[in-house]
């Protein structure tokens, strides 16, 4: 068949599809037309019709392909289902990297904390005396405001926590790509840092009370979030170090796609923690006992959530 015959025979179909692409609501028989279009494209290519015609059909086919295959069925309550079921399930399924992350952080916290508690001088090998004095200043006295002056500063610190903490979480995921070294560094560094500060401030009962009542609430979300973020970084690193029977790139892609929801969950937790840290933890008009009760309950809730949520079989 001559090219011109071919073109005039199918011109109506191509124009039809062009109109469908331009309209917002494609008709139900677009897939049928698309298959016909693919047929004409294959024929035009095979018969060596002019490249400009083939290019036009190619472009038409690509755009229709996108339109047809990118349509996603609406998922009802997808987010709620993820929160109530899929996220905790994923964390449990990836218990190995989560355990590694918990072990590195709390292990170092405990180790460094006990070392500093045993010999205060050791704190100076982690931080300068100025820094330590600074921390002490922040949590000292009954009217500790944690260097803040009113609700204005609360908002400022809230912004700072979001920028700083969520970024750290995301970076420790990205750093996992360097064979897990980045994630390991962030986790270990934060663990040791927390251990030194906690042990140093716990020496004096006054600062100890202020410090622990400050951190107890938001740490439930913040530390857990940071640890889950670095756990997802470890997952990336482990895909590179131990790809198993897959190629390294294939392993990396698979792990990255499967672990990403955990990272986003972690980022959301750190984000939520910023609200507590900004507007609750630092308030001085709330007695420390109330903070301990609320914080303790939040810790229990977080632990219960990851241990128990989503265990029921889907009905």
């Amino acid at each position: 068949m001559r090219q011109h015959q071919f073109e005039s025979r199918h011109a109506a179909l191509w124009q039809d599809i062009e109109q469908e692409l331009a309209s917002k609501q494609p008709s139900a028989d677009l897939p049928v037309k698309y298959r016909a279009l693919c047929n004409t494209l294959a024929v035009a290519r095979q018969r060596g019709y002019s490249p400009s015609l083939v290019q036009r059909l190619d472009l038409l086919a690509i755009n229709t392909h996108r339109l047809i295959y990118s349509a996603v069925g609406t998922q009802e309550h997808a987010f709620m289902r993820w929160v109530l079921r899929d996220f905790p399930r994923l964390v449990r399924a990836e218990w190995r990297v989560v355990a590694l992350s918990l072990l590195v952080f709390y292990g170092l916290t405990l180790l460094v904390g006990l070392a500093v508690a045993w010999d205060h001088e050791l704190a100076y090998s982690f931080m300068s005396p100025g820094q330590l004095a600074n921390f002490e200043e922040m949590y000292r006295g009954g009217a500790h405001k944690l260097a803040r002056r009113g609700s204005d500063d609360d908002v400022m610190m809230f912004g700072f926590y979001i920028m700083n903490n969520v970024s750290i979480g995301l970076r420790s995921f990205v750093g996992g790509l360097a064979f897990g070294v980045g994630a390991l560094f962030f986790t270990a560094y934060n663990g040791a840092y927390f251990g030194v500060v906690a042990a140093w401030l716990s020496r004096d009962p006054a600062t100890a009370l202020n410090f622990w009542s400050f951190v107890i609430t938001h740490s439930a979300l913040e530390i857990t979030g940071l640890l889950l973020a670095s756990a997802s970084g470890f997952k990336l690193g482990s895909a590179l170090l131990l790809p198993g029977r897959r190629g390294r790139v294939a392993a990396l892609r698979e792990s990255a796609a499967s672990i990403l929801p955990m990272l986003l969950g972690a980022a959301m937790m750190i984000f939520l923690a910023a609200f507590f840290e900004g507007f609750w933890s630092a308030r001085t008009d709330i007695p420390a006992t109330a903070k301990f009760i609320v914080g303790g309950m939040l810790w229990l809730a977080v632990i219960a959530y990851f241990c128990l949520a989503g265990r029921k079989r889907a009905t």
Binding site: R149, D152, V155, M156, F158, G159, F160, I162, M163, S167
Partner: peptide
Amino acid sequence: GAGTGMMMVVFF
């Protein structure tokens, strides 16, 4: 302070 805080959220 509030403006600075929101600014940091925007930067993020």
